[in-house]
Amino acid sequence: MTSLRSNTLSRWPTDELLCWVLRGTATIAGTIVLLIVVFLIVEALPALYHVGLPRFFTDPSWHPADGLYNLTPMLWGTLFAMTGSVLIATPLGILSAVFCHYYAPPTLARPYRRLIELLAGIPSVVYGFWGLVVLVPLIAEIQPPGPSLLAGILILTIMILPTITLMADASLANVPQQYLRGAAALGLPRWATIQSVVFPAAKSGLCTGVILETGRAIGETMAILMVCGNVVQIPSSIFDPIRTLTANIALEMAYALGDHRAALFVSGLVLMAMIVALVLAAEWISRGRVYG
């Protein structure tokens, strides 16, 4: 920024104009986020005022019609579904990008990449419908009732897989050719090159991919709503149904009034807080090492 400002070029009128346009667009982007947060808080205030924040975590259950507003089971539901799917999708995605880049013959790599891109373009409601009519009955055969945390994790995995695969693919493509040639010149085998040269060089992109997929896993709603069973409880096994915070909002918002409605905005706030925590954690983990 400083170097740009002191640049003599910036005195040119077109540069001045561009500068203001960029400032404008940046302000709009920032304002939208802030407006959404302010809006969430304003809408949640009645519930925070009438019910009080602690009760959202200490009430015996979630029955807003009877004035019970415990969000904790849904918080856990969101966390479990997110963690499970990220744990499965991350190695799968990164390794399939590695396969695509360093092992697959070009005739296979190209169509494979297109296929993954196609996977990214399928709307979430289609995944949800597939999960509901195929996956859930299959799980019900193994262990009733069928709609479960497991179904949610599997659907989420499929949905976030293209995100991490494409991000990993792009960051692997950005690894400088010299590194690879250097490694080859040293006589390193392929896997050793990937492990100790490519991964460290590409780790900022890989980290971004993980953050993006985690964000998508937290925010996904429709598919999760259709396959998870939506029972408000802390699951004791992966075959138990769960409800996520996003599903809670989608399921009840259309029919909610008064404090119930405000309580749903509180779930939105909690969700927002989770994402902020995630971003902060990612910043903290990667500080000075990945992006620096």
Binding site: A65, P145, G146, P147, N230, P241, A250
Partner: peptide
């Protein structure tokens, strides 16, 4: 029945 007493395995929209 009261909704608080309902023990469901699936909740739908």
């Amino acid at each position: 029945i009261k909704n608080t007493d309902v023990k469901a395995q699936v909740v739908i929209g």
